[in-house]
């Protein structure tokens, strides 16, 4: 029970923690802004409460696949906001080299709005699952204490990894910092789109295809490394062709908008 709750909450926390640390690093380094994070996290908590408390109704939408459709929508939107964040970050960097960047530049405002939205949506999905999980144990007092201890440990580990990543990125040489963060954002966006394809396949809205490769023998998805890679870069031991296409699309979109932000039309 204890270990199960540690792993479950860690899995859910890790994804949001990674996103938060990358976006926070960028906004702090470029404009010294971090207050948006409170709105992102607060909004995410409120939305995850609303989502989990309406999960019964949502699940029955679209002939019992409402959960998949809503999750896929949240994932696509998260990827969209990450793409816009990338563009805004590079756009403002370009400007920053000409005139001194101010906290209130339009690109800074666009970035923090999209960053808050991406974080809120990521927390909505992951948080609602934790709330449903914990809610189930509210009715079983004998386990509740154990589950709360395990969940707190899982949450703390996830948070620590996020903090490590934040300081790791912040201590890179200045010229690599933004690029390193954007590579992580590209992988994150790819992961979101691939996961949304998986959700739609599960709902039978997208036809299922055979797995493109099978690495489950040498790196099982359920292993610790497999789980870490799943949260970090969306590792799948048996991805379908559609998932790979979606993943590549997400990565390329972020890289394309990075290029668009970096080299504005004259």
């Amino acid at each position: 029970m204890l270990l199960g709750s540690v792993i479950l909450v860690l899995q859910e926390t890790l994804e949001a923690a990674l996103l938060v640390s990358v976006l926070m690093m960028i906004s702090y380094q470029l404009w010294n802004r971090v207050a948006w994070l409170l709105i992102g996290i607060g909004g995410g908590l409120v939305l995850s409460y609303l989502y989990s408390s309406n999960m019964v109704e949502v699940s029955e939408w679209f002939d019992y696949v409402g959960q998949e459709i809503v999750n896929a929508g949240l994932q696509v939107l998260t990827a969209f906001f990450i793409v816009v964040c990338t563009w805004a970050a590079y756009k403002s960097q370009r400007r920053g080299s000409v005139a001194r960047q101010t906290q209130t530049s339009p690109f800074a405002s666009l970035f923090v709005f999209c960053a808050a939205a991406a974080v809120a949506l990521a927390i909505t999905r992951e948080g609602s699952e934790i709330l449903l999980y914990l809610g189930g144990f509210l009715q079983q007092q004998e386990y509740f204490r154990t589950i709360m201890v395990g969940s707190s440990i899982g949450f703390s580990i996830g948070l620590s990894i996020g903090i490590l990543l934040y300081y790791g990125l912040s201590n890179l040489p200045v010229k690599w910092r933004l690029d390193a963060a954007v590579i992580l954002m590209a992988l994150f966006a790819g992961n979101m789109l691939a996961q949304s394809v998986l959700q739609l396949t599960q709902a039978d809205w997208i036809p299922s295809s055979r797995s493109f490769w099978d690495t489950s023998h040498w790196l099982p998805e359920g292993s610790i490394l497999g789980q870490l890679l799943y949260a970090l870069v969306g590792y799948e031991a048996t991805p379908s062709a559609a998932q790979l296409v979606a993943y590549t699309t997400g990565v390329l979109l972020v890289l394309a908008f990075r290029a668009a932000g970096k080299h504005p039309k004259r």
């Binding site: 699940s59 959960q67 699952e129 189930g136 599960q202 489950s216 048996t238």
Partner: peptide
């Protein structure tokens, strides 16, 4: 609630208490 999960099937879905769910 319970969560149906399978790494081999690539499936994951929350099933609410006293409710049903569909997974393809």
């Amino acid at each position: 609630p319970e969560e149906f999960e399978s790494y081999e099937l690539n499936r994951e879905k929350v099933i609410n208490g006293s409710r049903k769910a569909v997974i393809f």
